[in-house]
């Protein structure tokens, strides 16, 4: 369909150009007509190719994200497996998780049957057509669903009907950012329902937890969220957290924290310290993989801060399960995959 449309557009463009030139001069009409038609057709072919290539690149991104965990996540999972005591239920769970990661990769099949909310983060230069790109993403999502890389996961909240295509209001979720580079980067995260359900937003001060409006208060509510998430959300997990912002911005930022590599270091010293402390203390809670008890409750924690109103102080927490599916690509000028980002 895309091909047909693009060809049609190209044809009308060619016709128009030819008409214009014909009006201007009648002398070289025949020769000009021929060259114009030729170049316009050439152009149309390359537009078709570049759109087709984009679709192929996006489908490849979805397929790999769904089947293969990024290296930084695999690394912490293997470390967690090493840490657990032998012959415990925790080690047993981590071993099955490891086997599942290997099997999904080998078979190029979804790691978990819940392929989650499909979240795209697109960074682009100036003069970028977001409307067109959104359409291309939607097309790729439909194709990836047909191929079984994504489960039919999008339900109309009013009628309960499943579109079967993963496209509808809010689905897929696409976030655009303009950046100073000349290239287009597309990141993708698949976030399952089980772990999304244990996300939480706290408003400080929180009397029951004796948590005030400072970093220690932030620490307390995060630990409470980790405790409440036990047995749910398929731990061990990773936290993305935003301090401040309004309620909406806080949650969006908390998810974007999950785009950071697990082995990076927070540039803000106090937050770097808090991130490390949350992981350490959470692992002392003894909740363990799947909530079976054990040494690894969290695989990582990423925190950032947004400004807030004097009247409010939110802490927004997004929880990601061990099946932490995120990948990204940098596109070449011809929309091929130039580089994998994780």
């Amino acid at each position: 369909m895309a091909k047909k449309k693009a060809k049609k557009v190209a044809k009308t463009v060619a016709k128009k150009q030819v008409k214009k030139s014909a009006a201007k001069s009648t002398k070289k009409v025949v020769a000009k007509k021929a060259t114009l038609k030729k170049s316009a057709l050439k152009k149309s072919a390359s537009v078709v190719n570049i759109t087709k290539t984009l679709e192929i690149s996006l489908i490849e991104l979805i397929k790999n994200t769904s089947a293969i965990l990024p290296d930084d996540v695999q690394k912490v999972i293997l470390e967690a497996l090493e840490r657990e005591e032998k012959n415990t239920t925790a080690e047993y769970a981590m071993n099955i998780i490891k086997a599942n990661i290997e099997l999904a990769k080998k078979k190029s099949q979804p790691l978990c049957q819940d392929t989650g909310t499909v979240l795209f983060y697109v960074s682009h230069p100036q003069n970028f057509d977001q409307i067109k790109f959104t359409k291309e993403i939607q097309k790729a999502v439909v194709k990836a669903t047909e191929k079984g890389y994504l489960r039919q996961n999008s339900v109309d909240s009013l009628t309960g009907e499943n579109s079967g295509m993963n496209v509808g209001p809010g689905h897929p979720s696409i976030h655009y950012h303009q950046h100073n580079k000349k290239t287009v980067e597309v990141k993708l995260m698949l976030k399952g329902g089980g772990c999304e359900n244990v996300g939480a937003q706290y408003s400080l001060p929180h009397t029951a937890l004796d948590a005030g409006r400072d970093l220690d208060g932030v620490r307390k509510v995060i630990l409470d969220a980790v405790h409440k998430a036990q047995g749910k959300g398929c731990g061990p997990g990773v936290l993305g957290i935003c301090i401040g912002g309004d309620r909406g911005a806080g949650y969006i930022e908390s998810k974007e924290q999950l785009l950071r590599r697990l082995d990076d270091k927070n540039a803000v010293a106090s937050l770097a310290e808090l991130e490390a402390e949350i992981v350490q203390t959470s692992n002392k809670l003894g909740i363990g993989p799947m909530g079976f008890g054990g040494k690894t409750t969290l695989l990582g924690c990423k925190i950032s801060a947004l400004n807030r109103l004097p009247a409010s102080f939110f802490v927004s927490i997004s929880y990601m399960c061990w099946a932490f599916r995120r990948q990204g690509i940098e596109l070449s000028e011809k929309n091929q995959i130039k580089k994998w980002l994780y």
């Binding site: 086997a99 599942n100 099997l103 979804p110 790691l111």
Partner: peptide, 8 residues
């Protein structure tokens, strides 16, 4: 069972 281990 182990949550998420769909393939295994």
């Amino acid at each position: 069972a182990i949550g998420g281990a769909a393939q295994v």
